[in-house]
Amino acid sequence: MELRQLYYFVKVANREHVTRAAEELHVAQSAVSRQIHQLEEELGVKLFVQKGRNLQLTPVGQLFRKRAETIIGDLERAVVEIHEFMDPEHGEIRLGFPHSLGIHLIPKVVAMFRRAHPNVRFRFKQGMYPSLIKDVIKGEVDLAFISPLPEKVEHICGDVVLTEKLFAILPPGHPLSDETSIELSQLKDESFVLFRDGYSLRPIVWDACLKAGFTPQIAFEGEETDTIRGLVAAGMGVSLLPEMALFQIGPFQPAKVEISSPEVSRTIGLIHRSNEKLPLVAKVFHQYLLDYFSDSLSGSK
């Protein structure tokens, strides 16, 4: 069975006439009739019956048309995807990231990139640390921001692009809320609002508290930075969040205080599959991100 036979068959099925199908295909009528006849012989069924001057699909012909149209549609989409893959000014970039980066960083870098590449589309996928690694390995996303950068994970490679300080966040009116900076040990008697297990920020905060000489007392657990921030603002406890998770305005916000000791930070990595090439459009975006963070780092010195 040849792809040409499927094209001819679908065209005749839609036009219900060999001559009109041949005119659209810009081939001889005899060529169309011959391909349809060969297709019917190979399948061992009649796909059309004569009805006046037109052709009508048989029941099995109707069934076969659905499959043929699916095959042709998939092939046409594959051709489009290949062209997009090779064109840095078009196509789609599939980007994964944790929720904490979706508040400020992702909108900022995507908006800046699209000013220079307005025809590029993005498909976003938020996730936790393990799911982001899995999404990259399975090819669900081309690139993913992740914290921290995974070490020695098969089929994964990447770079640390950013190191970000964590700040203490306190309820408004807390005795320490007006301080310029505090030592983390000053919060040893406080109740903490933390991310639940599986989120990369939880062990960072937990280890920092242990380093400061105490085990944090957990009052509440959450899954999003908005939840953590809101619970702290409501007086349910204290917490630590990276600065990028604190780009919010409005009357109901926690106080943000720098931590002088111990130094608490997280690294953010940018990962992709190590065993295959990135689509060209994703490769351009990847290089843009590396340059962006390199320039940001240079500017901060």
Rank of each mutant, 00 (worst) to 15 (best):
I218M: 01
Q217K: 15
P242V: 02
A234M: 08
P242Y: 02
D226N: 08
T225N: 14
A219F: 09
T215M: 07
I218S: 00
G235H: 00
E224Y: 11
A245F: 08
M236W: 01
D226V: 14
A245I: 09
I228H: 05
E243M: 13
T225V: 15
P216H: 07
E223D: 14
E223N: 12
E223M: 12
I228W: 05
T227I: 13
L231D: 06
S239V: 10
E224C: 03
T215C: 01
S239L: 10
L240P: 02
R229Q: 11
T215Y: 03
E221S: 10
T215N: 04
T225C: 15
A219W: 07
R229W: 08
V232E: 13
V232M: 10
E224A: 15
A245R: 03
G235M: 01
I218A: 01
G230C: 03
L241P: 03
Q217E: 13
Q217G: 02
E224R: 13
I218G: 02
D226R: 05
E243K: 14
P216A: 10
F220L: 11
P216M: 08
L231P: 02
Q217W: 05
E243T: 10
G237S: 09
A233Q: 07
A234V: 00
G237F: 03
A234T: 00
L240C: 13
R229N: 08
A219E: 11
Q217I: 14
G235R: 01
G222M: 05
L231M: 15
M244N: 14
P242N: 08
V238N: 04
T215S: 10
A219C: 08
M244E: 15
E223G: 15
G237Y: 03
Q217D: 12
P242C: 08
A219K: 10
A233T: 11
F220K: 02
Q217F: 12
L241M: 15
M236N: 06
S239Y: 02
P242F: 03
G230P: 00
P242R: 03
V232T: 13
P242H: 06
V238Q: 04
E223Q: 12
M244K: 02
S239E: 04
G222D: 07
A234W: 00
L241F: 02
E221K: 05
E243D: 15
G237K: 04
G222H: 07
G237E: 08
V232K: 05
I228C: 09
I228S: 11
G222V: 12
R229S: 12
T225F: 14
T225Y: 11
G222E: 12
I228A: 09
T227Y: 03
D226I: 15
V232Y: 06
G230Q: 06
T227N: 04
G230K: 04
S239W: 02
G235Y: 01
P216K: 07
E223L: 12
G230D: 14
I218K: 01
V238I: 11
A233H: 06
P242G: 08
L241H: 01
I218H: 00
E221C: 00
A219V: 10
V238C: 12
L240E: 04
I218C: 01
P242D: 10
G237T: 05
E223R: 12
T227F: 05
T215V: 14
